[in-house]
Design a protein around this nucleic acid. Structure first.
Length: 466
RNA sequence: GGCGCGGUACCCAAGUGGCUAAGGGAGAGGUCUGCAAAACCUCGAUUCGUCGGUUCGAAUCCGACCCGCGCCUCCA
């Protein structure tokens, strides 16, 4: 049984999709005003693992991730650069897709953009007005939260206890209640606007997620994810406007990913601890190691990013890769070893791995299962008890789990340049002649180039070090 | 102030009433090796932020306190 922690009631509860076997998943995507940072990717990687796990468990998943391509920040930056909003966001949308590919994040089924769903939003706002949940003031339209008694049920915020004085309302529009939020913003000269039946202007932020999620997933769907910072006000507002609109329960399971901090502090540009993906990968780090690091802390726990932790993730990953390397390249006896029950070891691992992830995505338990299997199998390898077919079973078990983890490098059939191959041959000859000085020199030389040479009983082997 | 997360070995991190407190990384010693590397073996928390309490028994439950972090600003 799969269980998730549901923000709406603060409990871990069994997961039952609305339609058995099918999961409708909505995850809050990027606002494309800048390059996504590693904190954003923590959320996306978590959501990716969630989706991969559901797929692994046999669910058919429909995944929608929005792209916010119109908001205060995108408008402001586009104006500063004196280019159109579309021109401005294009660059960051492309970067986003490049980055998620590098992190081996599966693409969603739909990536709806706010600017391409204005009619849907307008339609929703119209209904909200008709139903009396929204009012117009000076050309803008607001959602009136006092009309929605459940307001605050997700974030557990008691509006009367909020200290209005402590908060500087940055919104320059006039609202009846400070917590009412804009569904539609009146046109301004400096801003792009759309001429619609509810007036000329642009949508507020929250409405896009409701309009687009309902369009692609229906008025009620299974899972909605995002970062914890979205709980209030964004998701709270989504619930209010969606349920006021449809009269139905909007989302059954709310899963929120906690933040990533760097060196114990919140990332911020002024502190100089703010990283986008490129910053990390430019330092010769492996994207798979970063993915593993982002993945390996439970999603409801703050992840403290450090370069030391990244090195540790790299080392862990190396252990898995070395294990596969052994299985791939050693010479094993033909057939199965009837005395070692490799299937049993694999089954135990699979079971523990799945049980771990089923328990609100307990990745630590899952990874433990993986490493325990590696340990057991390595012992068998070292005592010569693994045969050819056993090795193949192990590899296939690992590949199967990697459908969820997505951290193993694709088999690339990497080929070394002929120059390097010559060097390796040269070193082999030197070793034969017991000219170890030369052999070691060549080994060091190649190591400088990131190529690690290992002499084994089965002969020389090489690895590319990240 | 409100809401929430967390404090377990040198680092990361499971475990939420009872077998020897997972796993990974780093480290020390050993096996193998020309030497390395990888792999294997051995070692490593009488102890789980602090102080009380409940219990036959607590990292795990209760109370108080200390510390770190996040959200409450259109930040994932």
């Amino acid at each position: 049984m799969i269980k998730f922690f549901n923000t709406i009631n603060g409990k871990i509860e069994p997961f039952y999709p609305l339609v058995p076997g099918k999961v409708k998943l909505y995850t809050c995507g990027p606002t494309v005003y800048d390059y996504a940072h590693i904190g954003n990717f923590r959320a996306y990687v978590f959501e990716d693992m969630l989706k991969r796990f559901l797929l692994f468990m046999g669910y058919k998943v429909t995944h929608v991730m929005n792209i916010t391509d119109v908001d205060d920040k995108t408008i402001k930056s586009a104006n500063e650069e004196e280019i159109s909003l579309q021109q401005y966001t294009k660059k960051y949308i492309e970067a986003f897709f490049r980055d998620i590919k590098k992190l081996n994040i599966h693409e969603a089924d739909f990536y709806p953009r706010a600017t391409e769903h204005i009619p849907e939003m307008v339609q929703m706002i119209k209904i909200l007005q008709e139903k009396g949940y929204a009012y117009e003031k000076a050309g803008s339209i607001y959602f009136e939260i006092s009309k929605f008694p459940d307001y605050g049920k997700l974030s557990k915020i008691n509006l009367e206890k909020l200290k209005p004085g402590a908060r500087v309302d940055s919104d320059e529009y006039i609202k009846e209640n400070i917590y009412d939020f804009a569904l539609w913003k009146q046109e301004k000269q400096s801003e792009p606007s759309w001429q619609t039946e509810i007036g000329t202007g642009r949508p507020g932020w929250h409405i896009e997620c409701s309009a687009m999620s309902m369009k692609y997933l229906g008025q009620s769907f299974d899972i909605h994810c995002g970062g914890v910072d979205n709980i209030f006000p964004h998701h709270e507002n989504e619930i209010a406007q969606s349920e006021a609109y449809s009269g139905k329960k909007f989302v059954n399971y709310w899963l929120h990913c906690h933040h990533l901090i760097v060196d114990g502090e919140k990332m911020s540009k002024s502190k100089g601890n703010f990283y986008i993906l490129k910053d990390i990968l430019d330092k010769k780090n492996d994207s798979n190691a970063l993915r593993l690091l982002l993945l390996s802390t439970h999603y409801r726990k703050t992840l403290n990013f450090t370069f030391d932790a990244l090195d540790q993730a790299q080392a862990s990953l190396q252990r898995i890769e070395d294990f596969i390397y052994e299985l791939d390249n050693r010479t094993f006896k033909e057939g199965y070893n009837k005395n070692t029950n490799i299937k049993k070891i694999i089954n135990e691992m699979n079971q523990k791995f799945i049980e771990g992830l089923s328990d609100d995505l307990n990745i630590s338990v899952a990874l433990t299962a993986l490493f325990e299997m590696i340990k057991k199998a390595n012992i068998l390898i070292s005592t010569g008890e693994i045969f050819k077919k056993d090795a193949a079973e192990l590899i296939s078990a690992l590949n199967s789990l990697d459908n969820i983890l997505g951290v193993l490098p694709k088999k690339s059939g990497k080929v070394l340049p002929s120059k390097i191959i010559k060097k390796i041959e040269e070193r082999q000859n030197a070793r034969k002649e017991k000219n170890f000085k030369l052999a070691d020199k060549i080994r060091d030389e190649l190591l400088q180039k990131g190529i690690v040479l290992e002499d084994t009983k089965d002969g020389i082997r090489w690895k590319i070090k990240n």
